[in-house]
């Protein structure tokens, strides 16, 4: 099975993100032992009319502050379900989930979601009010401060000209940008993103990935990012959890340098991930996946 060694050894495993990893670890020098989000042996089940469906089985992982933690796995392996549970929308039947040391009991504004669907914005509010509402609804900010902060984040995602537009007048990519701005504006402890770019065309997706990384460079938020695309996982993540097919079980948790790095045997990271995910013949000298 997967050993503890890798998860404790989270220092700079790659040249690419070396500086940021160091920065992160120095910022969190005191809390390095305390993960921001800790998922321990979580099993999640759905009740349907005549079935009990196990979506994930005894999944464990830790997300540290400023992590770009990616959940990667084939379709139907329970990634969205895990994220929903972290969001507080469903309770595990086994195991526990702790955010800042407290058990996650219900949805709350300390976590912010970005979904895959374009219909996640409130259609009856303008772009600006969508973001403001997220800030004032919980009583976090007064209206005026909320407007300022909303405009700041709208600017960050490059939509200042569209602040007064209603969502239905925006393109899909713009809607996703608003959703990201909204999630970031509420300055949550952790951002939960469920395939936010999956419904976009390839070009837009690429650009949005770059923008997300740029935003991360600026604010160093913590994000838990779900995807079923290996290239996207490698691009976005600094840490990747691989989940097996249905029911989802953790197969491996690996560091990611941010590029499709070629290892000593000349095998690119994406191929190694592919092998781990789909259990194809593991070749000799394959690193810790046994």
């Amino acid at each position: 099975m997967y050993s503890r060694r890798v998860s404790s050894d989270r220092q700079c495993a790659s040249p690419h993100h070396c500086d940021s990893a160091q920065l992160t670890s120095s910022v969190n020098a005191t809390s390095a032992t305390e993960p921001l989000l800790s998922v321990r042996g979580v099993t999640l089940r759905y009740h349907t009319k005549d079935h009990l469906i196990t979506a994930t089985y005894r999944v464990s992982f830790d997300v540290l502050e400023s992590d770009r933690f990616v959940l990667l796995g084939p379709s139907g392996c329970g990634k969205s379900t895990l994220l929903k549970a972290v969001g507080g929308y469903m309770q595990p039947v086994e195991g526990e989930m702790l955010l800042n040391g407290a058990r996650i009991a219900e949805p709350g504004p300390d976590r912010a979601f970005v979904f895959q669907e374009f219909d996640q914005l409130l259609p009856w509010k303008t772009v600006r009010d969508n973001i403001c509402f997220a800030l004032t609804a919980s009583g976090k900010l007064q209206r005026r401060d909320a407007v300022d902060r909303a405009m700041h984040y709208i600017d960050k995602v490059g939509l200042t000209k569209f602040a007064a537009n209603f969502p239905h007048t925006l393109s899909g990519g713009m809607k996703q940008r608003v959703a990201i701005a909204r999630a970031m504006a509420s300055e949550p402890d952790i951002l939960l993103m469920d395939e936010p770019f999956a419904a976009l065309d390839a070009l837009t997706r690429e650009r949005m990935q770059a923008e997300l990384l740029q935003l991360w460079e600026e604010t160093r938020f913590t994000v838990l990012f779900v995807t079923h695309s290996i290239p996207e996982a490698i691009r976005i993540g600094n840490r990747i959890l691989l989940l097996s097919a249905h029911p989802g079980q953790a197969k491996a948790e690996i560091n990611c340098p941010g590029i499709d790095e070629v290892d000593a045997e000349g095998k690119p990271l994406s191929d190694r991930i592919q092998e781990m995910l789909f259990d194809r013949i593991v070749q000799q000298g394959e690193p810790e996946n046994g």
Partner: peptide
Amino acid sequence: LSPTLKMVGRNYGLSSTGYIVWILIPGAF
């Protein structure tokens, strides 16, 4: 009302009346 929108609404930390007034009613308008 779309489940996504409901989840978004519940994420805001609204009271249950707030949830009905600010999310459910406009969403079902």
